[in-house]
Design a protein around this nucleic acid. Sequence first.
DNA 1: AAATTATGTGCTTTTTTTTGCAACTTTAAA
DNA 2: TTTAAAGTTGCAAAAAAAAGCACATAATTT
Lengths: 248, 248
Amino acid sequence: MLKQERQAFILHKVNLHNRVLSSDLCIEINVSEDTVRRDLQELADNGKLIKAHGGALSKSFHNSFNSSQVYSLENKKCIAQKAATLIKDGMFVLTTGGTTIIELAKALPQNLQATFITGSIPVALEYMHHPNIEIILIGDKVSKNSQITVGGEAISKIKQIKADICFVGTNALDAEQGLTDNDWEVVQVKKAMIESSDKVVSLTIGEKINTCQRIQVCNIDAIDVLITEIPKDSAILQPYIKKGLEIM
Amino acid sequence: MLKQERQAFILHKVNLHNRVLSSDLCIEINVSEDTVRRDLQELADNGKLIKAHGGALSKSFHNSFNSSQVYSLENKKCIAQKAATLIKDGMFVLTTGGTTIIELAKALPQNLQATFITGSIPVALEYMHHPNIEIILIGDKVSKNSQITVGGEAISKIKQIKADICFVGTNALDAEQGLTDNDWEVVQVKKAMIESSDKVVSLTIGEKINTCQRIQVCNIDAIDVLITEIPKDSAILQPYIKKGLEIM
DNA sequence: AAATTATGTGCTTTTTTTTGCAACTTTAAA
DNA sequence: TTTAAAGTTGCAAAAAAAAGCACATAATTT
């Protein structure tokens, strides 16, 4: 097998499977590991793939994970746009924390007049840019992981509220396991918010649908509306429609 | 699984769920905890995520604040440096809002272990960068002008506290009129904070000394320490020394 | 065509990287 | 404070990469 032929084969294979092992290649092409390594080196030098210990990775594979500051920002913006339409003048709105909720805060129309209640510091900061919005901050100890206030004080304050709608930034959603999260204190706060609201809206990027975390926030039927960037008729959403959720 | 592949997987997961546990990762990718820890360490060194006990956090959660357009920044930094020396491990510290207090938050030593109580959103965000600091956020309605929480709830919470020291960002200070401000609600909060503290420290840039505003926060003798960027023996400070204030 | 040069390949040895293990220390939670 | 979990350090085995060398083959020059 000629050198160029070999390298074309390697490139094809790496793009097909996203990754190759040197050991596999040298068996398949029947050359020494040295040769394979030298080929990989050459392809890597030309920027055709990314070399790794023991093999190589496809270029596209690696790029997809080199994302910018906010993960999956475009999807979150799309979700935020949809969510913003649910908020009407005069409403009392409870929101959790998280980057999707920050996008929601940014997506709110400038002239909206409503009251927003949150325990999230970055979210509150974002609300502040809206002149007609009233902000109620839930006080208590600040959890550094999640950047929201947590604890008994916060929860008892939330319980005193009767909000029209609650937007929950969702970490993991599953038709069977419901809404789950991984921080015990944050879960308590989310639970309280859900209980205090007439309508519960889960903002969930597609990737988080059908995933689970350690601690349950609520059952799937506690959620009224599920907003994702995925089209409504997509197969992945059908179980949720069956459970009675409204999809946006 | 190749190393880069593994790290890409970890990065993906941490960005997806904001937080990962080492223990989960090492089951999912089927390597030892050591390897996961080393991967996390490496990713943290490259600034891709933030390592924590037992796992890692997504970077997009810890965006810091940009203080490019702060008035008289250099003076405020100088004041903040001096103020930071007053805080010892284990203290309960009450702080108001304002850019000088933000500088104080930035000037705190990394290893300081203390509890900070504030109603200011930007200040709280700044405290969050310090790993050993406990933050208590005072909740209530947010005043957009001052970016702090104001109102009866906030004040009654402050009154429940007995703090060691209180740092007041000062808008106007005069030997006769005392500490004054121009926002009625903010004044109420500052009053409460001063009453709840053993020691009161006023952070005041030179320009604001011998100026007055509409509403009085407290008399001059309620203040224990005055910190400015002006040298102690300057003529402008003599009336304050006479009134018994300690100058820094 | 012969000689020379350049290139490609595989082998061996050395060096580096990666990984898991074990003993010990630090951290955080009860 | 006590205790369990997580982190650290040093080490050793295994895997992979790099370097140097030998040999074969192709290309180029004379």
